[in-house]
Write a protein that binds this DNA or RNA. Structure first.
Lengths: 126, 126
DNA sequence: ATCGATGCCTAGATTGTCAAAGCATGACAG
DNA sequence: CTGTCATGCTTTGACAATCTAGGCATCGAT
């Protein structure tokens, strides 16, 4: 046993730069989108703004993250989409929570709560 | 040799024990490892057990996640490693938090708190 | 005329986690 | 003695989600 040389890939080039804005953790975006939509029908770009606003500018969802996520979520039947014109006269794709989506939101929130609790337990250890 | 697939089998399903096991979200593992090591020097396998125990069995870190993470973390200088023999007489690779690692733990904990807060803000919206 | 904000979409890269496998040793039951 | 199990480290490959960085189009204001 006891190998002398490690052969894991070398990530040492990375340098940790402090960012003022927090990157989303994988798995949280769906919940945020569903939550945003639970407050009412909304189009993609509006979802980004709503999440940013509700989080006091702490969460910034990139478009390149959002739209694929919306597609994914729609495929799963958690939201339904339709093109519509909104007050400004511009067209946009409006998303609406389905019943399944609302269920899913509850599930994901419960999951999130469990994770937060579990991590809190670890962190409070002395 | 290797008995079919049994080694990593999830016995909670077979024994019908509701584990409520949460999958780790990407980005949380480093913090958990650093936290575990902040309680004292430990080897890899022990880190897994410690995290599982501290989280009341809610968090289960796979070996295939842990060891690459440890390597990554060591490359960043957050931990130092040395081979040693422990009380059982077996060899193991012991990891120890460096000063940089302790700072990093604080940073990641602050980050985590910010994320949890931000998500809480979104979630409490009506 | 230009420019920023709005609005949607995509390709590619990155990255972390997991599943699964291999190897090795010690303890212990049979 | 032999087999099995828990311990212990390593590696490969798959996978999924996010981000970067573009593209396109419309609109209002300068």
């Amino acid at each position: 046993m006891m190998p002398t040389v490690s052969r894991y890939r070398d990530f040492s080039k990375e340098f940790n730069v402090a960012k003022d804005k927090a990157d989303l953790l994988q798995g949280t975006l769906d919940m945020l989108i569903l939550k945003a939509l639970s407050l009412g029908e909304l189009h993609g770009y509006g979802i980004i703004q709503r999440i940013r606003q509700l989080s006091d500018e702490m969460l910034n969802v990139e478009q390149g993250s959002l739209y694929p996520a919306l597609y994914r979520i729609e495929q799963k039947g958690w939201v339904s989409a339709r093109w519509d014109v909104h007050d400004t006269g511009r067209e946009a794709k409006f998303y609406k929570l389905t019943r399944t989506g609302r269920k899913q939101l509850e599930t994901q929130e419960a999951s999130w709560d469990r994770l937060v609790l579990a991590i809190a337990k670890v962190r409070q250890a002395t």
